[in-house]
Each structure stands twice: as structure tokens, then as C-alpha cells.
Simulated assay, not measured.
Amino acid sequence: MEKELICICCPMGCHLKVNIEENKVTGNGCKRGINYGLSELTNPVRVITTTVKVKDGENILLPVKTKGEIQKGLIFKCMEELRNIEVTAPIKIGDIIVSNILNTGIDIVSCRDCLILRSKIKN
């Protein structure tokens, strides 16, 4: 059985034809397309980007992302868990917000700095 995909590994957007039975990918412009095509049909993964709530911060939401890829089937569970997270400012870009989300070995990290709200700073 052959499936058609558009590769998202680079801006070329190659039109791939993937045959899982033969472990064969055609239409790729680079080696990354082969890995993408095979993994997309056998074990699709994604990087998640979203926001979490911030307490005492200059912003009420903090952009976060997974530090690596997680299985596509875990996206909704991950989002559900992150919906309940509230962090307290100050936070630096790259800080780990959740370690080992859903036992995947992947951390959720901050995508920006978040300072303490001026009214919360003690003189």
C-alpha cells in the first residue's frame, strides 16, 4: 500500500510516496524526507507549542513548547495537563516548566522571559 504525503522537514515541501511494506520512500529531495515519510506512517511525532498561566507576572500567559517531539497520540493528554499548570514569575527563557511530561522523557520549556509584576516587587 502506498501513501502520499507532503514532507515538512524543509521549505521544499516534497511530495512523497511512501510504501511501508517495502520500506521505500520516493519523491524526496533529501535524506530527511525518507526518515520523515517512514516515521510519519509508523510513529508520527510532533513538537507542541502552547501557553500556561502565570502568577504575579508581567504577562498572564507564558509561551511554552516541548523540548523535543512527542507521539502524536499524546497531544491532547499533554494539552490537558498543561491547561492545569500555573507558574510563578520570574521565569527565564529555557526554564523547565514541566519535567518529563507524561513520562515521555521530554520537558516543557519556557519560550520567553517573564518578569515579576511591578506591584509585586518588594522594596
Results as ranks from 00 to 15, higher is better:
Val45Pro: 00
Ile93Asp: 14
Leu117Pro: 02
Ile101Thr: 04
Gly27Thr: 11
Ala89Glu: 11
Phe76Cys: 07
Asn35Tyr: 01
Met1Arg: 13
Lys122Pro: 05
Glu81Arg: 10
Gly68Met: 07
Glu2Asn: 13
Val87Leu: 09
Ile116Leu: 12
Ile93Met: 11
Asn28Trp: 01
Val98Leu: 07
Met1Phe: 12
Thr50Arg: 06
Thr51Ile: 03
Met79Ile: 02
Thr49Ala: 12
Leu102Arg: 01
Ile101Glu: 01
Cys9Gln: 12
Gly105Cys: 03
Asn23Arg: 09
Gly29Lys: 05
His15Lys: 13
Glu80Tyr: 04
Leu41Arg: 07
Lys53His: 14
Thr26Phe: 01
Val18Asp: 03
Cys7Met: 11
Ser99Lys: 14
Glu58Cys: 12
Asn35Pro: 01
Thr49Gln: 11
Pro90Trp: 00
Gly94Thr: 14
Glu86Thr: 15
Pro44Leu: 01
Asn84Ser: 02
Arg118Lys: 13
Thr104Cys: 06
Val25Trp: 00
Met79Glu: 06
Met79Val: 02
Val25Lys: 02
Arg83Val: 00
Asp56Gln: 07
Thr66Leu: 14
Glu81Lys: 10
Ile85Lys: 09
Tyr36Glu: 11
Arg46Thr: 11
Leu38Arg: 02
Glu2Cys: 08
Val87Asp: 10
Val98Ser: 06
Glu4Phe: 10
Glu69Asn: 08
Asn43Tyr: 00
Glu69Asp: 07
Gly29Tyr: 02
Glu4Pro: 04
Thr51Pro: 08
Glu58Thr: 15
Lys67Leu: 09
Arg83Leu: 01
Glu22Ile: 03
Gly68Arg: 02
Pro11His: 07
Asn103Thr: 00
Gly94Ala: 15
Thr50Val: 03
Ile101Lys: 02
Met1Lys: 11
Leu41Ala: 08
Lys120Met: 12
Thr42Phe: 00
Asp107Pro: 13
Pro44Cys: 04
Val18Met: 04
Gly29His: 08
Glu80Met: 05
Ile121Glu: 14
Tyr36Cys: 07
Val98Asn: 06
Asn123Ala: 10
Ile106Val: 13
Glu2Pro: 03
Ile93Leu: 10
Asn23Leu: 09
